[in-house]
């Protein structure tokens, strides 16, 4: 289960990434809510969740809404 503060951080990060990718603000907010609810479901029964797990869950969920956003989370930490 993810903490509320972590969820807030994730939501903020998702919105920044979506704005950076050129996704309109309204769509970005809707996508962020949907992605976060998917992530909540995926992490419901997990005791330990790493940053890599979170990025993977977000990437899988984001694939439904925007391929570039999914890719950004897939390659996180692998750029340099």
């Amino acid at each position: 289960m993810i903490d509320e503060t972590v969820l807030k951080e994730l939501s903020k990060d998702l919105k920044i990434n979506m704005k950076g990718l050129g996704i309109p603000v309204g769509a970005a907010e809707a996508f962020a809510d949907k992605i976060l609810s998917d992530v909540k479901k995926s992490t419901k029964n997990k005791k330990i969740i790493t940053e890599a797990d979170l990025n993977r869950f977000i990437s899988v969920s984001a694939k439904k809404y925007n391929k570039d956003l999914a890719y950004v989370y897939k390659i996180r930490g692998k750029i340099i």
């Binding site: 990718l21 750029i79 340099i80």
Partner: peptide
């Protein structure tokens, strides 16, 4: 490649914020 990689990430986040 290091400087362009960092610039790429930096500009993405800067234009997101």
């Amino acid at each position: 490649q290091l400087v362009p990689s960092i610039f790429m990430i930096f500009y993405h986040y800067a234009s997101g914020k």
